[in-house]
């Protein structure tokens, strides 16, 4: 296949940035989307040009590093698929593909398609944990947990922290990310002692980082590569409001 790529290039956070066009030929349908970038980068290096910087690591859809906004969709056209697992058989000969970084005020661009997502770490630091020191645990089976709750907690915990939800949201809201952690811990008995402060502190940090509000458009859920449900946002809102009544 022969493809045209329009890729966002930006030298650093101060640079204004622009799109650049690249023609790539001999694209195999068996390539992953990131392998297409490897091939293009190899060519750019051989031509004495600067390769395109992008975040990536595990290339099996679990580390959450890859983060490309492809033809207007976070992680591209396939449902519940990260950029690294998207394969070129999704495209046809002659296609033009536009590739941008995540766009959000809270995710400043570092270079090209690489953005700074450390705001997510700070949201977790605000309360995304259970305060238990090493060595204090009781026997694991001393805390039976209803299977349904355990399964729901797991489904929320499957979040990979990639930020697609923020990129897909017209308000750049981080509600899906934050609510997934709040939900996981609210659903488990181990998380109950801190649930009040957790919901308040994490929401407060989210606002502080400059993420927008939620207006229930559902784009986050539609684009989430791990299928995190928007019902987690409802659960977080409940946690947040009930915290207001009790604190």
């Amino acid at each position: 296949m022969k493809l045209t790529l329009k890729v966002w290039r930006q030298k650093n956070v101060q640079d204004k940035g622009r799109f650049e066009n690249y023609e790539v030929s001999d694209v195999s349908k068996d390539m992953s989307f990131l392998e297409l970038f490897d091939v293009l980068n190899e060519r750019l290096i051989n031509e004495g040009k600067e390769p395109i910087a992008f975040d990536h690591d595990c290339r099996e859809g679990i580390c959450g590093a890859c983060s490309m906004y492809i033809n207007g969709r976070a992680h591209g056209p396939w449902e519940q698929t990260t950029t690294c697992q998207l394969h070129m058989r999704a495209y046809n000969d002659g296609d033009t593909i536009v590739v941008e970084p995540w766009r959000a005020a809270a995710f400043p661009v570092i270079k090209d398609l690489t953005v700074d997502r450390s705001a997510f770490d700070r949201i977790i630091q605000a309360g995304g944990y259970i305060s238990v020191n090493t060595g204090n645990a009781v026997d694991a089976n001393a805390i039976p947990i209803e299977k349904h709750d355990a399964d729901m907690a797991f489904a929320a915990a499957a979040c990979i922290g990639c930020g697609a939800c923020v990129a897909a949201c017209k308000n750049s809201s981080a509600m899906l990310f934050t609510s997934a952690k709040v939900s996981q811990l609210a659903l488990l008995p181990q998380g109950h002692p801190e649930r009040t402060s957790r919901a308040e502190d994490m929401v407060m940090q989210m606002d502080k980082e400059g993420f927008g509000s939620c207006t229930n458009t559902g784009a986050c859920e539609a684009e989430c590569p791990k299928g995190i449900s928007i019902s987690n946002i409802a659960r977080m809102n409940r946690e947040f409001f009930s915290a207001g009544f009790t604190s």
């Binding site: 090493t134 060595g135 026997d139 694991a140 947990i145 299977k147 355990a150 399964d151 907690a153």
Partner: peptide, 16 residues
Amino acid sequence: DQCVAQGVPFAREYGG
């Protein structure tokens, strides 16, 4: 024990 206390959602049986 430590991981369960931290909220790691291991697979469970119906009895919890």
